[in-house]
Amino acid sequence: MKYRYCGLILCSPQPLPELKTVPEETTPDIRIRQTTLGTAPSNARAYGPNWAVREGEGWWWLGDRIIFRIRKGEIDIDNRNIEHSLARSLLLEAPMVLAMIFDGIFCLNAASVSHEGKTTVICGAAGSGRSTAAARLALRNGHLITDSLARIQCTEESAKVVPQGSGSLLWPDSLTELDLDAMTGSPIRSELLLRRISLKQATKTQSIDHLYWRNPRSTSHLIRETPTQTLGPRRQFARLATMTAGRMWIDAAGVSTVHFQWCLKAAKQLRISPAPDSLFF
């Protein structure tokens, strides 16, 4: 089956029910295979606790329960003892980010939504509430564009965000806050209460109107940031670099120059401001 994710066509032998299918005759960008893998080869440099990279090839694992081997245009999965829903969720995060990085494609860790004719991208630290904020606007007659990975396409004239296409990952407290049943959607794994929910999704790439940054604990009663405090060009560039998904892999994959150019283009087109509280409450 073939599916669309962050604008790429994935060809997978296992169903990926989170994603929209595309016609079979479409040419895939990334082939996913189920196979048996050993450990990462000794000449792959372990930069992190659970991933290693050598030229043109990355490895990502979670204990001895799942191993991914990522090359340009292909991802192999050795899925030994892990729930399918978790294996799919892991695949759609680290291995896909690494596959895109090998291809010179960059994403921000960001949720985004189109609402009342405007497209808003919300970056910020994990736990800052960006997914809930995007889901809230999507539920108010908007369309969800991305939940965690916002692929940004920049030209000299514009910056656009590509639909992720995998719904939204939300905790029961967020679902309740959004007036949804805490059991809405499907669980990711039996040990956790995290749910994946389907929302009305954007299907087309959208021009970005607002790029917001959310502090990790802006729920603090006194933090009041206003959208007027736009970052200057240098800080904007630096923040885009730090918000790039899988930024630790960029050097290892040998694409830091491409990333630098991408940040430069994006910094010219986008203005990062602190997210207004109205998005979150």
Binding site: G48, W51, A126, W171, R189
Partner: peptide, 18 residues
């Protein structure tokens, strides 16, 4: 125990992990 460095360094949101 901040969540962000774990996310960045491991590569997946800690929300997916126990």
């Amino acid at each position: 125990a901040a969540r962000s460095p774990l996310h960045e360094i491991v590569g997946v949101p800690p929300a997916l992990l126990t």
